[in-house]
C-alpha cells in the first residue's frame, strides 16, 4: 500500500521535474510551448527547434544519467556491504574517465559505442583492482584505496588533456554536465541500461540476501561470489555509461540510495525502482539549476546538496566502522 503511493508520488515528481527542466534554462519557455513542441505534429519554429534539438536530449540524458548513477550506487552499497560505496568513491568513474580520454587520444574518430566500451573497460579494471586490493574488507580501506586511485587517474587524465590540447573538447568530463548529448547517443545507452536494470531486477532476491552479510548469506546457501561478480559488473556498466554522457558526477550515487533506504526500507524490488526514479529527477533538476546559473558545473550544484548529507552519513552511520 505504502509502496504503491510512493511509486505514484515519484512518478509525479519525475513528471514535474521533466517539464520544469524543459521550461527553464538560459531561455525560458512556457509550459504550453513545451507541450506543443513535444506533442506529435508540433511546429518546429526557432524556439521549438532549440527545445527539441538541444534541450530535450539534454534533459533526457540528465534523467538517464541520474538514474544510472543512483542505481549503480545502490548496488555497490549492497554488494560491498558498505554504506559509503558509490561509483566515484570506488574509482570506477575515474577509470572510465581515463579510459575514454586515452581512447579518444589514440583513435580521434572514435564512435560513441567504442567510447562507451572503453569507458566500461576502464571502470571495470579500476573497480576490480580496488576490490582486489581491499578484498571487500573494511569500508575505510575501500575509501582510501578508491580516493588514492581516483586522484592518480585524474592527475594522469589532466596531464593527457593538457599536453594534447584537448581542454575544450573534454573539459566537461571532469566537471560533469549533460550538455552536448545527442538523441542518437541516448538511443545506444537506453537499451543497454534497460537490459542491465532488468538483470538487476531478476537478481533482486539475491541482492536482498546480501544484506545479511557474508556468513548468513552463505548459511542460506547463496552462491555469493557469482552474484557479486554479476551485480558489480552491472553496476560498473551503469556508472561508466553515465560517465560517457555526463562525465564524473559525484555524491549523487551516495545521496539518492540513502534517502530512499531511509524512507522505503531495503528490499531491492522496490529500492531499485525508487532510486532510479528519484535519482533521475534529482539530476534533471540539478542540471536545470546549472543551466540557470550560467552553466555552473552540475557537480557544484550536487556537492552543495550532497556535502552536508555526506557529513551527516559519516556522523550517524560511519560510527560503527570505527
Amino acid at each position: 500500500m505504502k509502496d504503491g503511493w510512493l511509486v505514484l508520488l515519484l512518478c509525479i515528481f519525475v513528471g514535474v521535474s521533466f517539464f520544469a527542466a524543459m521550461m527553464f534554462g538560459v531561455e525560458n519557455y512556457s509550459l504550453g510551448k513545451v507541450v506543443d513542441t513535444l506533442s506529435p505534429g508540433g511546429e518546429l519554429d526557432r524556439a521549438g527547434g532549440i527545445l527539441y534539438e538541444i534541450r530535450l536530449p539534454r534533459v533526457v540524458a540528465a534523467f538517464l544519467a541520474g538514474l544510472m548513477i543512483s542505481i549503480s550506487g545502490l548496488i555497490m552499497q549492497t554488494v560491498t556491504h558498505n554504506d559509503l560505496s558509490e561509483p566515484s568513491i570506488l574509482g570506477v568513474n575515474a577509470g572510465a574517465n581515463f579510459a575514454i580520454v586515452a581512447a579518444t587520444l589514440v583513435l580521434p574518430v572514435l564512435s560513441f559505442a567504442a567510447m562507451l566500451t572503453a569507458g566500461f573497460l576502464g571502470g571495470l579494471v579500476v573497480g576490480v583492482i580496488i576490490l582486489f586490493v581491499t578484498r571487500f574488507r573494511s569500508p575505510i580501506h575501500l575509501i582510501l584505496a578508491g580516493a588514492g586511485i581516483s586522484l592518480f587517474l585524474y592527475a594522469v587524465t589532466d596531464f593527457l588533456v593538457i599536453t594534447n590540447n584537448l581542454g575544450q573538447y573534454l573539459a566537461f568530463f571532469t566537471s560533469g554536465g549533460a550538455a552536448g548529448v545527442s538523441l542518437g547517443q541516448l538511443g545506444v545507452i537506453a537499451p543497454v541500461a534497460a537490459v542491465v536494470i532488468v538483470i538487476l531486477y531478476v537478481l533482486s532476491k539475491e541482492l536482498d540476501v546480501f544484506l545479511f552479510g557474508e556468513e548468513m548469506a552463505a548459511s542460506l546457501g547463496q552462491n555469493q561470489r557469482m552474484y557479486q561478480v554479476i551485480t558489480l559488473v552491472c553496476a560498473v556498466l551503469l556508472a561508466s555509461m553515465s560517465v560517457a554522457i555526463v562525465g564524473n558526477v559525484v555524491f549523487l550515487g551516495l545521496l539518492v540510495p540513502h534517502i530512499v533506504k531511509m524512507i522505503a526500507g531495503y528490499m531491492h524490488r522496490w529500492t531499485i525502482l525508487y532510486t532510479g526514479l528519484f535519482g533521475g529527477a534529482l539530476f534533471m533538476l540539478s542540471d536545470m539549476a546549472a543551466r540557470m546559473l550560467n552553466e555552473t558545473p552540475v557537480n557544484a550544484i550536487i556537492a552543495m546538496i550532497g556535502l552536508p548529507f555526506f557529513i551527516y552519513i559519516i556522523r550517524t552511520r560511519g560510527r560503527k566502522y570505527a
Binding site: 556491504h81 544484506l211 556468513e215 548468513m216
Partner: peptide, 30 residues
C-alpha cells in the same frame, strides 16, 4: 550444491548483527 547443503545444515553465527533494519517477520522469511 550450496542450497542443498543449506536445507540440511543451518548455522547461527556469533556476530549475526544486521547492517540494515528489518521487520522481524521479513527477516525470518529469508
Amino acid at each position: 550444491k550450496s542450497k542443498a547443503l543449506a536445507k540440511k545444515v543451518a548455522i547461527l553465527s556469533q556476530k549475526n548483527r544486521l547492517q540494515y533494519d528489518l521487520k522481524v517477520r521479513d527477516l525470518v522469511s529469508f
